[in-house]
Simulated assay, not measured.
Amino acid sequence: MTTDRGSIDYRLQAVRQQIINAAQQVNRDPKDITLLAVSKTKPMTMIREAYLSGQRSFGENYVQEGVQKINEATDLGDIEWHFIGPIQSNKTKDIAQHFHWVHSIDREKIARRLDEQRPRESGPLNVLIQINIDDEQSKAGIALSELKALATFISKCSNLRLRGIMAIPAADASESQQKSSFAALYKAFQELKTTHPNVDTLSMGMSNDLDAAIAHGSTLVRVGTAIFGARTEQN
């Protein structure tokens, strides 16, 4: 492990250790938790550095930027690309053709378009349904009451594979509200697993609430700044 505190390798090792510590605190196996490196706005040089440090899963918010990176990384055969941003109807074809995972499905129209536009030779697209757990007007996602219907629709799409749910709880939530939101998401995840056998992913938790999310059953955490440094806004 490098001793350069500013390097991506050092930061990755620190985040991985944080995940291990958080999992052990609640008697969970750290291997059951995937680290998704949120690489939006970051150059391919940084992604390649993270790849050399063993990171394989990367998350992108912007379709055009993500597709460009995917095309530049064709030599990295086992890299896995996740689209985690809001989905516009006119962007579904690029997402369906290039990404391995989509975290942000929140309506049937988007699911249908992704299903129709996914190349069969690429295999099913892994998808998560986004839940707006705290009913925030500024965020995408469905209410928990709508989950069953959307999950049933996606399960009938031959080119999509429903893997679970994703949520971004309110950033300014109190500790009790945060715990309540995480608990509700975990309960919904467990219920979804009973009716959809491919469901195995609960994507919740970022840099500021990673420990709490893991304590409440998260299987995938999304971390950007702690790995790559402060984000660079697009013009």
Score class of each variant (00 low, 15 high):
Glu65Ile: 13
Val127Lys: 01
Arg222Asp: 01
Asp75His: 13
Asn159Gly: 07
Ala22Tyr: 09
Arg231Cys: 01
Gln190Tyr: 05
Tyr186Val: 04
Ala226Cys: 08
Gln137Val: 14
Ala167Tyr: 11
Trp101Ala: 06
Arg222Asn: 01
Ala170Gln: 10
Glu108Val: 12
Asn132Arg: 11
Asp106Ser: 00
Arg163Trp: 11
Ala226Tyr: 01
Arg222Leu: 02
Ala73His: 12
Ala167Ile: 09
Thr195Met: 06
Leu162Asp: 07
Pro86Glu: 11
Val127Ser: 06
Met44Cys: 14
Leu125Ala: 01
Ala173Met: 01
Arg222Cys: 02
Thr152Glu: 11
Gly59Lys: 04
Ser180Leu: 14
Lys40Leu: 08
Gly141Phe: 10
Leu150Trp: 08
Ser138His: 14
Leu114His: 09
Val199Thr: 03
Val67Ile: 15
Gln190Arg: 09
Gly217Gln: 09
Gln177Val: 13
Val63His: 10
Glu116Met: 06
Arg113Ile: 03
Asp172Glu: 06
Val127Pro: 00
Glu80Gly: 01
Ser145Ile: 15
Leu76Phe: 13
Thr41Val: 10
Gly77Tyr: 15
Ser89Lys: 14
Arg11Thr: 06
Ile20Ala: 08
Asp172Leu: 08
Ile87Gln: 04
Thr232Gly: 00
Pro124Asn: 10
His100Tyr: 10
Glu121Cys: 13
Ser53Gln: 07
Thr232Asn: 08
Ala167Phe: 08
Thr195Val: 08
Glu60Ile: 11
Ile87Leu: 03
Glu80Asn: 13
Ala167His: 06
Lys187Val: 13
Leu160Thr: 03
Ser181Pro: 03
Glu80Ala: 12
Asn159Cys: 12
Asn132Asp: 12
Thr152Cys: 06
Leu125Trp: 05
Lys69Gly: 00
Leu192Cys: 03
Thr3Asn: 15
Ala50Gln: 02
Leu114Asp: 06
